[in-house]
């Protein structure tokens, strides 16, 4: 119940975060890069609010948000056209990775796969030069969107 109430408050919080740059931490939200990824793991939730796998599925597919299908095929989203083949197929991702590892991969893939990876870091300020004005000072996803995607990835099981 209390979780539901918190989630209701989120749209306002997210809108605020989008305007003010996502790096401004709201109460209970971990600011980008303030918690280090150690040994390819980030056990701590970024918000303390459990991720919503249904919202995560949408953010995953949304071209303006995760746009994860740009690079990854995922059978669960076969209703969507054009799955990329740059990254591994994500079917069974939860069988291969722990939640803390998936969070680390989404937050800053470079800390897991190395500096050369093509996969963007979705909740980090360690990005490329000359960031366009609309995106400057912001992370690609908000902290809660990361938690939602992690919750969604945890549903991708084959075993």
């Amino acid at each position: 119940m209390s979780k539901g109430a918190t989630r209701k408050g989120l749209p306002a919080l997210l809108a605020g975060a989008a305007v003010m740059a996502a790096s401004v931490a709201s109460a209970g939200t971990v600011a980008p890069d303030s918690v280090p990824i150690v040994d390819m793991e980030l056990p701590q939730s970024l918000t303390g609010v459990a991720g919503d796998p249904v919202a995560g599925r949408e953010t995953f597919a949304d071209r303006k948000k995760g746009n994860c299908l740009a690079c990854h095929a995922n059978a669960d989203l076969n209703d969507q056209l054009f799955h990329g083949e740059v990254g591994p197929v994500l079917d069974g991702a939860a069988d291969r990775w722990e939640e803390a590892q998936l969070r680390a991969i989404i937050v800053n893939s470079k800390d897991v796969f190395g500096e050369q990876t093509i996969m963007p870091g979705f909740y980090t300020m360690k990005v490329g030069i000359n960031v366009a004005e609309d995106h400057a000072g912001k992370t690609i996803l908000s902290a809660q969107e990361v938690e939602d995607i992690v919750a969604y990835l945890m549903t991708l099981k084959e075993d």
Partner: peptide, 28 residues
């Protein structure tokens, strides 16, 4: 080879490392 932007990609990331692969509907 310089990575730019919020997505942190260089020309080489797409056209040297991943040519021949589809990135969404685009064949690199």
């Amino acid at each position: 080879y310089t990575r730019t932007g919020q997505l942190n990609l260089s020309c080489a990331t797409c056209h040297e490392d991943y040519n021949g692969n589809y990135i969404r509907a685009d064949h690199l």
